[in-house]
């Protein structure tokens, strides 16, 4: 893998929109071309090189490309948005829409991400070691489908409406999740190892979708019904994957746990599941 290093210089006060920062858009380009990639500040178009020192090498194809950003990008939007291959590592925080609509490859953020990270993600792996903002992996307004594939792993807490309108893929939250987790979900899997605020799974239809909660739940909607307490075999598969392939150590602790199973949202005739680990 060829590594390209981007180091933020003085970033503008206004948000910088930089969907140009993906392995896809730098692969096959010279450093000079990379520096000339457009970025947007307010109503102006600027060059990537105006705000980032660019060093290292570019690869022929995105899948051989590693892009590493060293420095805080908390006000930089769209980092890794739409990427299809390769790796992108940010050592620091990122602004809104990080990894939105990404289709493949790996985007790894050591800090926190703002709202809409991984929104409408289709594939690939998005790791956020810190916290994520609102609408993590959600559908953009009006869209009937949020995540349709891929995996998001968040080390910290997440805001409102994480996994809204989820269809496929996995969302793993190691910290706490705020309200409306998995609202309108219709497929896909959500795992939360911290606490979950109320209204999780609101208006979820089902289609195989579930939310597994390991750290407790503030409350369950009145439109979810308690079915049983059991040890679901199927969950073992996911938990092993989380532990062995995604490095979520905590998952290993629940391999033999019992879960309370709730089904809903019956307000919409849904068959989604909420599984809550018994302490």
């Amino acid at each position: 893998m060829k590594e390209l290093m981007l180091t933020p210089k003085k970033l503008p006060d206004l948000p910088l929109e930089a969907e140009a920062i993906t392995p896809d858009s730098v692969a096959g380009k010279t450093l000079k071309e990379v520096k000339s990639l457009p970025v947007y500040v307010g109503n102006t178009v600027q060059k990537l090189g105006d705000y980032f020192d660019v060093k290292g090498e570019t690869a022929e194809t995105p899948s051989d490309q590693l892009v590493a950003i060293q420095g805080e990008c908390g006000n930089v939007k769209y980092i890794g948005a739409g990427m299809t291959a390769g790796r992108l590592i940010v050592e620091g925080c990122v602004g809104m829409h990080a990894g939105a609509e990404m289709e493949g490859g790996e985007l790894s953020i050591t800090g926190s991400a703002s709202n809409w990270a991984g929104a409408e993600m289709k594939g690939g792996l998005l790791r956020i070691q810190g916290d994520a903002g609102h609408q993590l992996g959600a559908a953009y307004r009006g869209s009937p489908e949020g995540m349709t594939g891929g995996v998001i792993v968040v080390g910290g807490d997440v805001g409102l409406e994480a996994g809204a309108f989820m269809r496929r893929g996995m969302l793993i939250i190691q910290g706490d999740a705020d309200s409306f987790l998995g609202v309108h979900m219709n497929g896909g899997e959500i795992f939360v190892f911290g606490n979950v605020a109320r209204r999780l799974g609101a208006e979820a239809k089902g289609n195989g979708g579930f939310i597994a909660c390991f750290g407790g739940v503030e409350s369950i909607l009145p439109t979810y019904v308690y079915d049983t307490t059991f040890r679901p075999d199927f969950l073992k598969l996911y938990l092993r994957q989380l532990r062995d392939q995604l490095g979520v150590e905590a998952a290993g602790e629940y391999l033999d746990a019992s879960f309370r199973r709730y089904r809903g949202d019956i307000a919409v005739g849904g068959t989604a599941e909420i599984l809550i680990a018994e302490p």
Partner: peptide
């Protein structure tokens, strides 16, 4: 409000609500 609206919808669908919301 949200919980109450959902519960009402469930009741309209034919599920009897058994607990206060």
């Amino acid at each position: 409000d949200f919980e109450l609206l959902l519960a009402l919808r469930a009741a309209v669908r034919g599920t009897e609500i058994t607990e206060d919301v």
